[in-house]
Every structure is written in structure tokens, then in C-alpha cells.
Design a protein around this nucleic acid. Structure first.
Lengths: 145, 145
DNA sequence: ATGCTTTTTGACGTTTACGTAAGATGCAGT
DNA sequence: ACTGCATCTTACGTAAACGTCAAAAAGCAT
């Protein structure tokens, strides 16, 4: 019932013991992030994930889970999968990447950073708008009582 | 990007000049926000804009320009045109909207606000990731010299 | 062994947000 | 009147990001 394989020992030094289940099936991972397996396979097809293959079936370790988490966060922030992939690829090639690649990565990071700044400003402005509309709305509501 | 930042209001405190051009053609507006006329027409078709018609041609006043500005900001923050439209429609109906509509608007505003909060958190996390990747990257670059 | 669930690989469909091309119309300057 | 843009409507095209079957293979529980 419970997984009881004593032959498997952690190869992970620093990890959150709370969610280190070593690996996930595609379905488990999907439930974990509230997306569909289809989405996960699609991301793989787009070069964002490279799960291990145990026979035919995909096995996701923590590294892939983190990648997926970052991918989803990037998406929420409006980045396209292509943009995310470029960063991911460069990041993977980092340890033995050449200088040109490293510079390219720094360049991309600076871009992302700038975009984050613009978003912060947009959020600030949007929150003001919301405040404004809300107060007007509450006034209108008060007038109607 | 040689244009002035459209998120900054073109100086438009009510000018006393009687022949100040308080309106824009579709092309002018497009250049102002660095989008295409097609996009503007599309937004109209989706119920986000309702320009005056002078004959066949569309005329945009400040109100419509502000709407467009808010629409684009909403888009940058990841809202769909449908979501933006709902807010816009309710906002327009506000002065004489019924209580149910006003409550609905407040509800929507709360949703948007919550989403903004989530985005702020995402940005915070993303910035940390960027910091992390960047420092690793700089180290790798230093090792290579 | 036999169901039952999950996963896999296609392949085609869908939605969103426009792009693009065609043909008509209008207006400004010469 | 003619030229040359800008704009209009209509309609088909497209890219991104999945959704939705379908059929087969693989696990697992009894």
C-alpha cells in the first residue's frame, strides 16, 4: 500500500522534507498544480520539461516539478512559453555555457527584471483605479438606500 | 519606442484654446499607443470602445482614449478582453445602475484586487529567482575569465 | 487472469487576439 | 480632375496554448 522501497536513498542534500516525494506521475503532478496532463505534455513538447522515462511513462523528479512551478509563475506574469523556454535552456546550459551564452542570459534576466518593474507600476496604477471606481461605486450604492 | 509613454497622460488639463483638438482619428490614437488601427477596431467590436461617428469615420475623444489606456494596462496585467469589458460595461451603467449591478461591480473589483495581490507575490518570488540565477550566472562568468 | 484506472501517442478542434489582403469611399493638395 | 493617403467594411488567415476524443499499451488490485 504505502511505498516501501528501502533501496532508494535520498540523493538530495538540501530539500524540503514536506514535499520531497522523489518522483511523480504525470497525473499526480497535474493534480498538484491543478492543470491537466495534456498541459504538462505540451510543455514538454515545447522544450520546457524533460522528464525521465521509465519504459514508456514519464517520471517527474523535484527538478522538473520546480521547473513546472516556475513555468506556471512565468505564465501568470504574462510571459510566453517561448520566452520561458529561452531562459530555461540557457539556465540549463549554464554550468558549461560559453561566455556569449552567459551574457545572453544576463541580458534576458535584465529584460525580465525591467518587465517586472513595469508590471509593478501597472499594478500600482490599477490599484488606484480600483480604489477610485470602488469609492464611486459605494457612493452610488449609498445614494440608492 | 520613440514615442512618449502613453501611460502618461498627454498634457490635457482643460485647455482654454477653443480649437484645441480634443479628439483623435483612429490612426493618431494608434500611433499614440503604439498599436494598429485594426486592434482599436477590434476592441470596439468587443464592446470596449464606442467612438463617435462622423460620417463613416470614427472619432475618439478623451473618454475613449482613457478607456483604451486602461484596456491596454489591463491587458498587460493579463486580463482578457472579456474580463475588461465586464468591468467597463458595469462602470458605464454605474450612475443609474441598480443595486444588483453595483454589488456585482464591487465583487469584480474585489476579484481584481485579489489578483493584483497574487501578482505582487509572484513578482516578488520571480525577482528572487532572477537575483539567484543572475548571481550564479555572474559566478560562472567570473570562473571563465 | 480480469477488470479498472492511468498513461501514451497521434490528430483534429477551439478560443483569444489580432494580422492581412481586397475593394470601396473620402478628403487634401496640386 | 487626378493623385495619394487614410479610413471603412468584410472576410479569411494565423499563432499560442491548450482541449478533446480515440485507440493502444501499461500498471495494480482482487
Amino acid at each position: 500500500m504505502h511505498q516501501s522501497d528501502p533501496t532508494i536513498e535520498p540523493t538530495d542534500s538540501v530539500s524540503n522534507r514536506s514535499d520531497t516525494r522523489r518522483h511523480y506521475t504525470i497525473g499526480e503532478l497535474a493534480r498538484l498544480f491543478d492543470i491537466t496532463p495534456r498541459t504538462i505534455r505540451f510543455y514538454e513538447q515545447e522544450g520546457l520539461l524533460e522528464p525521465e522515462r521509465r519504459g514508456q511513462t514519464r517520471i517527474y523528479h523535484d527538478k522538473e516539478r520546480v521547473r513546472l512551478k516556475l513555468t506556471l509563475r512565468g505564465k501568470r506574469l504574462g510571459f510566453s512559453l517561448a520566452e520561458i523556454r529561452e531562459v530555461v535552456e540557457l539556465y540549463d546550459a549554464m554550468p558549461d555555457g560559453d561566455v556569449r551564452q552567459l551574457r545572453r542570459l544576463l541580458e534576458l534576466l535584465a529584460e525580465k527584471r525591467a518587465e517586472m518593474q513595469r508590471q509593478l507600476e501597472d499594478i500600482r496604477l490599477m490599484q488606484r483605479e480600483l480604489d477610485d471606481v470602488e469609492s464611486r461605486c459605494r457612493n452610488a450604492l449609498a445614494d440608492r438606500t
